[in-house]
Design a protein around this nucleic acid. Structure first.
Lengths: 218, 218
DNA sequence: ATTTATTTTAGACCGATCGTCTATTTATAA
DNA sequence: TTATAAATAGACGATCGGTCTAAAATAAAT
């Protein structure tokens, strides 16, 4: 090979700079969505501190300049991810916990089964974004705290509704404290997700769910 | 000030390099213990990934070179911390769960109370090292996994013994599955610690403990 | 049509920090 | 004495999160 050939044979694809043409392969909308998706994958797996921006960018195939066009900082990005995850999870919870074809208690079991399947699908590497960040809170921007608490609060409300319906159809005792039980569930559930990842097995999820359902028999 | 004065007036204390004389202020034993202590404080608070070596070293007042004399790597250090924490926790568990002055169920309540007080003492910033690392596992050396599982297994055994004693004195049903209940407790407890840190309150600990004790009434 | 402002991308760059390594000094043993 | 081991100090390259300028295309204004 000659070495006197400037302007040719770049080692890797020399990407064009500047705003891309309108008929570009990727729309701005998609670029942002790509960052969100890659970020969610990375943070559900490794948490906030261990997830490097460069790594997320590499996975998304997006350069740093674009990232800082869509997000003011890693903190702002993390905040957006929490919001995105909460929205996604709300849909998923609704899907299971309001299914009219199933009794309230069956719906909870359905959610547990779906969660077990979901964790298995990714080899038990990914956890719950909210749980991950909650655990890391001491090393995180303080602005995350309220946001994370609000998400838990939302999940608790949705479960509480389901438990009240269980009372209505006499599946559980009418004297049960549904609010307290919902808090109990999400508290322990995060621990179960943690153990499931550690043991790479869905048995912690099932063990916790079984205990919770037994508690409802009071 | 003149500027032609070499070998004098170092800006900060120029620490001597090389092995310190025998009558040094700090013994090698102490140096290692200092590193362990600072490491435990840092990792229970921020986890493994977010805890920087420099920060730990600064807190311990030990230079980097010394660190790598006592530990082969951050991974080896982390492994030593897990062992140290497990030993410390085993003593603490024994203290509460085998107290002959208290009934088995009271012992569990005592442990919960002590944990709540312990978390409050540090402003709910510190969590459980084992839980922290378990949550981070996807970003950690694979060698940690078995070690962490073993610690949980040990805690479960200790609680199981206590629950069997509760059966023996008819505090709980003789048909209860003590092993399963012990797994359930430590699974949910880690979630409770997580929530307590997030909400900066001991109420998640108490809520979970109350639910667990109610479960024992079956 | 031409100019101007805005949007979006590329990647160089900075100070800080990551975990590791080499060099230095002392104690101990041969 | 000499050689080896123990203990410390700080340099080191790689990478981190974050900022910056420059480039290229679109949209708006004239």
């Amino acid at each position: 090979m000659t070495d006197d050939v400037p302007n040719t044979a770049p080692v890797a694809a020399p990407r064009r700079r500047g705003r891309p043409p309108k008929d570009s392969a990727r729309s701005p909308q998609e670029t942002r969505a790509l960052l969100i998706r890659a970020g969610l994958e990375m943070l559900t797996e490794k948490g906030y501190s261990a997830a490097g921006l460069d790594e997320i960018l590499r996975a998304a195939g997006v350069p740093k300049g674009s990232f800082y066009h869509y997000f003011a900082s890693k903190e702002a990005f993390g905040s957006a991810l929490i919001g995105e995850y909460a929205a996604y999870f709300a849909v998923r919870l609704d899907r299971w916990l309001t299914d009219p074809q199933r009794t309230p208690l069956q719906r909870i079991e359905d959610f547990v089964e779906d969660s077990a399947a979901g964790m298995a699908r990714y080899g038990f590497r990914r956890g719950c974004l909210i749980g991950n960040l909650g655990q890391e809170m001491s090393a995180l921007p303080e602005s995350f705290r309220q946001q994370l608490q609000d998400v838990f609060s939302d999940w608790q409300s949705r479960l509480e509704v389901c438990l009240r319906e269980a009372q209505a159809c006499r599946e559980i005792s009418v004297t049960a404290d549904c609010r307290q039980l919902a808090v109990f569930f999400w508290t322990g559930w995060e621990g179960a997700v943690l153990r499931a990842r550690l043991e790479q097995s869905d048995s912690p999820l099932r063990t916790f769910a079984a205990g919770f359902l037994q508690l409802l028999e009071h």
